[in-house]
Design a protein around this nucleic acid. Structure first.
Length: 918
RNA sequence: GCGGAUAUGGUGUAAUUGGUAGCCACGUCAGACUUAGGAUCUGAUGCCGAAAGGCGUGGGGGUUCGAGUCCCUUUAUCCGCACCA
């Protein structure tokens, strides 16, 4: 009886489902382990063969951990809110809930075929009201808290109100949108709306007028991580900067903790680096510059206070609040023209034209506090409104952008650091001796920086300040298919719904586009108000809202009293191993950490970091195949002969190509126009060309895992995906080669059974060689799993099989069946049961190796002469280096190469190598 | 421009972490069994060479008895950030 994978796999799929094999509960008698995959967005296209790569790796790991005695939490769910379903709804009128449900069912069907050990009782869907109740709950908590820098944690906003009533802002160091100063008396004198406006400045979830990424085509604002090169990540539509009133999360409050936390995580260095860059910490100073003829002072941020003596002008962003105020009547026309021109340019154009210098003078002057000279204030779009204060002190001698600007406008360039030639270019390096700099002159830059910090603070011009590139996350989307905000309005003032009103359910709707007035779709809903008739917020939450705490919900998915119970949280704690794509580096992985830290501050969770160890699986690219049509005919010429013809390259469906050889009949059936195709063959075969491209429908290179499972079985798919190469590496999918793994599994099967399908194991004692082979494999496989090196463990199984030959001994094959179980669970279960075990193979103990079987008594040394391998010589392992040194020269092999000469040196590394240097 | 990663046969890859480069597969070639083969089994397969031997881990240089691995330099590809003051 041959290896009937179809029968075996459907049997065990059924059995695992019926017996709830992978259901897990809290079990204080066993150590826990939490293995998580990034849950998928259920798209209409279904899974392709690249998606399960990470799932298979994590499944192998969790099955392994389970076999090692851990209580393993390994859940799966769906990130079900989002733009694509809604775009589809706008086009077709189908409700996103319907298409999402369909897609989820399709995903589930596909996932089930691969034999994952997910506990489906814990499934979550972000679009389920019972789930998003807790998304809304967390939002309300953020709304009701502010971040106190002194306490280094989030505190209730009510405490802030009390504080304001007692002493105003005196002594307060809190994360806020703009620094505020007021007294207790002022606070008490304000009305409710005014106070609320002030509190919005501090809330961790707040509504404010801010510069946002507006995507007109999608009709919504987007967060920074949803925009790339001035285009939306979803859809690739142009994005522009616009000032709008939007909800945001004060992620920046946690910037330092998000940065510090990275050091405690087992993440790849490159991923940590991406997050560090995204947070973008820079240490510098805030400095206030006097403005001539004004009481106000222009605030700037600089990391080079040492160069203040070289400041010869200042530049503010076109969007700066004071533009109008600083513009003198003579310059008004020019300034307004410039601003108009900047507005018209999209973000994308602005990025493309970074080299071009543009700007205009305001006519106002500031005063350099150290040289006392009047310096002109300019407007230019090379200064960004969103970073620092949107204003800079320009040091043309030591900043290349300021230099280009000064050259263009003929402004003064005063060098203050020695080195470089300011006639040619600016000298940006942070080293050298200070010149033309008053009290700093003669110091090195490294001394001058702290000296100037001190001086600025002493003279009350400003203070040391740490700045972050990280922006607060814009949290509202003018969309339908997302979580509604538990917020209502009285006039323009926002109020939270009370927690007992949650979940605030998304109302049904038929038209999914924006209204004619450009309002979000929820504006169409009659009665989208509170019971008292106050209007509810019309925007919904963004995609990352639902994915920010889903790992917590898996711990306790059916709890309607809390996001996660104390008991469940304290048992499961945090994710021990998280597997997913690197594309979430600055989005989901950032927001989740923020969300979790916030819940940690409030005492709802016991771990500060949600994902202890993280593995990024590589992207799977497509491998396209081509046929070559002779131009103007319906003849197709094989790859090797195409040079003789004028041909046209056409993508052909990879599913009708095998090992680059075209299935001619299937090709004729593929599309009607090829029904009577003729072929020019080489060696009676049609060989296709190939290329590595993105996996997509239009390239006909999408490989569906269902087809692989159908033809080879899930166990083959699982092992082959691992065999393909290191898990972190991006690589093209190539079905060529899957035969090797399939062949291995068939051979493996045939080791246990005779021709009639009867178990053919013997109770004979294994030989030393067999035991050595077994224990070597156990050792290798265990180590490889721990190191996430699954490709080499698959190889180890193949080597073991080659070494075992026809060994049918139970003492060898029984542990081998358990050893392979994480990789090929179906076949392992079947073998285990056939061998007479009642319980699942996953209730067994994972085999461990015994060093004793691996020991060698003698070692055949490779002997090198002058670094080149010349002969081999065996010595017992007990032989000392000195013994070998003395005797190896006398060996027959050595005599030939020495040719009578005396060696200069003989190097012996016991157990490794001998090198004779002549 | 800054930061990170990668580079090994025709292909995917491996290398006890400084110690016999190419394990394990795919592919190819030869053979066996076959009416047949997208089945199975055996053998060969880095390059040059008849052989002895030589050359080989993107290129150049260095350290070392010994380098795919360490150091310097250079090239190519991929990814992230990018007028961040």
């Amino acid at each position: 009886m041959d290896y009937n994978f179809k029968q075996i796999e459907s049997k065990w799929r059924q059995r695992w489902n019926d017996q709830q094999t992978y259901r897990v509960e809290i079990d204080n008698s066993r150590p826990k382990y939490y293995v998580l995959d990034m849950f998928p967005y259920p798209s209409g296209a279904g899974l392709h063969v690249g998606h399960p790569l990470g799932y298979i790796a994590s499944d192998i790991y969790s099955r392994y951990k389970r076999l090692c005695g851990y209580n393993v939490l390994h859940p799966m769910g769906y990130d079900a809110f989002g733009l694509p379903a809604e775009q589809y709804a706008i086009q077709t009128g189908q409700h996103p809930a319907v298409t999402t449900e369909q897609n989820i069912n399709r995903y589930r069907e596909q996932l089930d075929k691969i034999g994952f050990s997910f506990d489906w009782n814990r499934e979550v869907r972000t679009c389920d009201p019972a789930y998003y109740k807790w998304t809304q709950w967390a939002f309300l908590k953020m709304y009701a808290h502010y971040y106190d820098r002194t306490a280094r944690k989030a505190l209730p906003i009510s405490a802030l109100e009390e504080r304001f009533a007692e002493r105003g802002t005196d002594g307060l160091d809190a994360a806020c949108t703009a620094e505020m100063r007021f007294t207790a008396a002022e606070w008490t004198s304000w009305d409710e709306a005014r106070r609320e406006q002030v509190l919005q400045n501090y809330r961790l979830a707040y509504r404010a007028d801010t510069m946002v990424n507006w995507c007109p085509k999608l009709g919504t604002v987007l967060a920074n991580d949803e925009v790339k090169d001035g285009l939306s990540v979803r859809g690739g539509y142009p994005v522009e900067q616009k000032r709008m009133k939007q909800w945001s999360l004060r992620v920046t409050a946690y910037a330092q903790r998000l940065l510090d936390g990275l050091d405690t995580l087992e993440w790849s260095e490159s991923l940590k680096e991406i997050q560090r860059n995204w947070i973008g910490r820079s240490v510098g100073a805030q400095v206030f510059f006097d403005i001539e003829g004004s009481e106000r002072k222009l605030e700037i941020f600089t990391t080079r206070p040492d160069t203040i003596f070289g400041v010869t002008f200042m530049v503010i962003a076109p969007e700066h609040e004071w533009v109008s105020e600083l513009t003198t009547p003579d310059n008004r026309a020019a300034v307004e023209g410039y601003i108009e021109q900047t507005k018209k340019r999209s973000e994308r154009e602005r990025i493309a034209e970074t080299r071009r210098v543009s700007g205009v003078a305001t006519g106002s002057y500031a005063v350099n506090p150290f040289t006392d000279k009047a310096i002109p204030i300019y407007i230019s779009d090379y200064v960004l409104a969103g970073y620092g204060t949107g204003a800079i002190m320009a040091v043309p001698a030591h900043d290349s952008r300021d230099y280009a600007f000064a050259r263009h406008f003929g402004l003064e360039i005063v060098p203050v650091v020695e080195g470089g030639d300011i006639e040619k270019e600016s000298y940006d390096a942070k080293s050298g001796r200070m010149i033309n700099s008053g009290f700093l002159t003669g110091m090195d830059v490294k001394e001058a920086i702290p000296a100037m910090f001190d001086e600025v603070e002493r003279r009350g011009l400003g203070k040391r300040l740490v700045n972050y590139r990280l922006r607060d996350a814009i949290f509202s989307r003018q969309r339908y298919w997302g979580e509604p905000f538990p917020i209502y309005y009285k006039g323009d003032t926002a109020y939270p719904l009370s927690e007992d009103k949650l979940p605030l359910e998304l109302p049904p709707i038929e038209n999914f586009g924006p209204t004619e007035q450009g309002e979000p779709p929820l504006a169409r809903v009659k009665g989208w108000t509170t019971e008292e008739g106050y209007p509810l917020e019309l925007s919904t939450m963004p995609g990352f809202a639902g994915s920010s705490a889903y790992y917590l919900r898996y711990m306790d998915p059916h709890n309607d009293k809390a996001l996660v119970s104390k008991e469940a949280d304290e048992y499961w704690r945090s994710v021990d191993l998280y597997v997913g794509g690197i594309e979430h580096a600055t989005g989901h992985l950032m927001y989740s950490r923020f969300w979790n830290m916030f819940l940690y501050d409030l005492g709802y969770v016991c771990e500060q970091e949600p994902f202890k160890k993280l593995v990024n699986q590589g992207m799977i690219q497509g491998r396209s195949n081509f046929v070559y049509r002779v131009v103007g005919t319906n003849k197709f010429v094989s790859l090797g002969l195409r040079a003789q013809y004028e041909t046209q390259e056409i993508h052909v469906d990879v599913n009708i190509v095998r090992n680059d050889q075209l299935d001619l009949e299937a090709f004729r059936r593929w599309r009607p126009e090829f029904a009577d195709a003729e072929f020019i063959l080489e060696d009676d075969k049609y060989i296709c060309g190939w290329a590595i491209e993105k996996m997509s429908k239009s390239m006909y290179n999408v490989v569906n895992p269902d087809n692989i499972v159908e033809n080879y079985g899930a166990d083959t798919l699982r092992m082959y995906e691992m065999f393909l190469g290191p898990i972190e590496q991006s690589k093209p999918w190539d079905t060529n080669g899957i035969d090797g793994v399939h062949k291995f599994l068939r051979k493996f099967w045939r080791l246990y059974f005779d021709r009639d399908g009867k178990l053919a194991l013997t109770d004979e004692a294994p030989t030393a060689a067999e035991l050595k082979s077994l224990h070597k494999t156990i050792k290798k496989v265990r180590e490889d799993i721990e190191n996430f090196s699954f490709n080499t463990s698959v190889s180890a199984f193949m080597i073991c099989l080659n070494e075992l030959g026809q060994c049918r001994k139970r003492a060898v094959l029984e542990p081998l069946a358990i050893l392979i179980a994480p990789f090929a669970p179906h076949i392992a279960e079947e073998l285990w049961e056939t061998m007479g075990h009642n319980a699942s193979v996953f209730d067994a103990a994972y085999p461990d190796y015994d060093e004793a079987y691996l020991e060698e008594s003698a070692f055949e040394y490779p002997v090198m002469v002058n670094g080149k391998l010349r002969f081999k010589q065996e010595y017992p392992l007990s032989a000392t280096a000195a013994d070998i040194q003395a005797s190896v020269v006398k060996a027959e092999g050595a005599q030939k190469w020495l040719a009578g000469k005396t060696p200069k040196k003989v190097i012996v590394v016991p157990g490794k190598i001998i090198n004779i240097v002549i």
